[in-house]
Amino acid sequence: MKAILTDITKCIGCNECVKACTETNGLGEERAYRWRADDGLSSERYTSVLRKKGFHVRKQCRHCLEPACVSACPVGALKKTPEGAVIYDDSRCLGCRYCMMACPFGIPRYLWSSPVPYVRKCTMCYTTRLTRGQQPACTEACPVEATIFGERDALLSEARRRISDNPRLYLPKVFGEHEVGGTAVLYLSPIELDFLSLGNRLDERPMPERTMLAMAVVPPVFLGMGALMGGIYWVIERRRRLQKEKPAEKADNSDGSSDK
């Protein structure tokens, strides 16, 4: 499983990663559209460098280990590849934007200006670079190795080594190790990174788990409801039939008795 580690303390805010991303993905001009969020991400920018408390924090898709978007998409247009990247397939998408609602980091963006709109997000350069054995454009472009690419386990141990080497510099945790079940984009930071996620604070439970129970009971509820309805119908119908036959039977009996 590949991953990206971004060390906030090393970033100098040069935006080389953003430039490289823009070029590799052939992204167009960034415009101040009405619908754009103020975190710098848009359908034309898959990564951005935020300036918070004097630090530079790169924002991008976290490539969750158990992605909410993948479990939400009704047609499987989003996929988690074995390499770790979460990728999106234009040709399957029907534009419901459930992935955008589900993402706890608010990452996927939409081509709102187009009459034929698609979802846009970082894909870890999956088709353009990862599958050809190259690392993503952003990590390659970083001049100070503030954001690096590698195996997730290796990066995690590297991160822990840096924390133990320099415990006063960093908060004592690797951001992305456990949140929402773990992400493939990890951060080392001296400040809390709450601003990277959207809305209420989350725990370590993977997002798809939250719908799993409700989805698991679907088949039994479906069949059970059918059986219940059929049962009620049958019982009442039978009682009615008997009620209708009863007076008739009585009549029959009385006829029979008179015959005797």
């Binding site: 998409c73 009704p74 499987g76 399957r92 998408c93 029907l94 534009g95 419901c96 034929v116 798809p208």
Partner: peptide, 26 residues
């Protein structure tokens, strides 16, 4: 009107993702 690509609405019939509640609703 709400779907971005409404002409793809039939995709739900052939591309399945049974984990998605929206798939089930659809």
């Amino acid at each position: 009107f709400d779907l971005g690509l409404p002409w793809n609405i039939w995709h739900m019939i052939i591309f399945w993702n049974p984990k998605s509640p929206l798939f089930e609703v659809g």
